[in-house]
Amino acid sequence: MSETALDAAFFVRWMTAVAAAVDREADHLTELDSAIGDADHGSNLKRGFTAVRTALEKEPPATPGAVLVTAGKTLVSTVGGASGPLFGTLLRRTGKTLGDAERVGLGELRDGLRAGVDAVGQLGSSAPGDKTMLDALDPAVTALADGFAAAAEAAGAGSRATVPLQARKGRASYLGERSIGHEDPGAASSALLFAALAEVAR
């Protein structure tokens, strides 16, 4: 695994796989969001990742970093809800951290994603345990040391573990204890990101 070298085409496949997963799961994400949010997470992310797919097809960037910066920038400008700047910052900061390298290894990707996840925490002033996307992202990046499948599994488990939590950030936090018992939509979509990564790496 330490010898894995990932090129720009791999990152385009990853983003395309995320777009497909978001398409497939949009209704489910919106259903989760209707319980504790404003019922637009699925449609917002679908619009965003459809635009990402179009942008990458139109002008495929030359490096892994540029793929993620383009994807992040596109999400910030097209989503329209809070998930736009959050996912956008995750991908853009990860991409910037990867720099201009034509190929990146697993360790570099992990460092890049760690910087991206930290930027998300800073943007939302949140930490794991607040019932947000960080509850899936944080364990996933840690588990990436053991490979893509382990990261996907950790993201899914992290997302399911948001069910008993009370939301401390975002619109769901207005619900107080009534946010308990529902899976966080942002954690669920973050898990899709890592499921897609494992899928394209297989």
Binding site: K73, V76, G80, G81, A82, G84, P85, T89, L123, R171
Partner: peptide, 14 residues
């Protein structure tokens, strides 16, 4: 919400 986060992200990253 997203108005705050979008402007923060634009100032920080864009």
């Amino acid at each position: 919400g997203s108005a705050v986060l979008t402007v923060k992200a634009m100032v920080a990253e864009g």
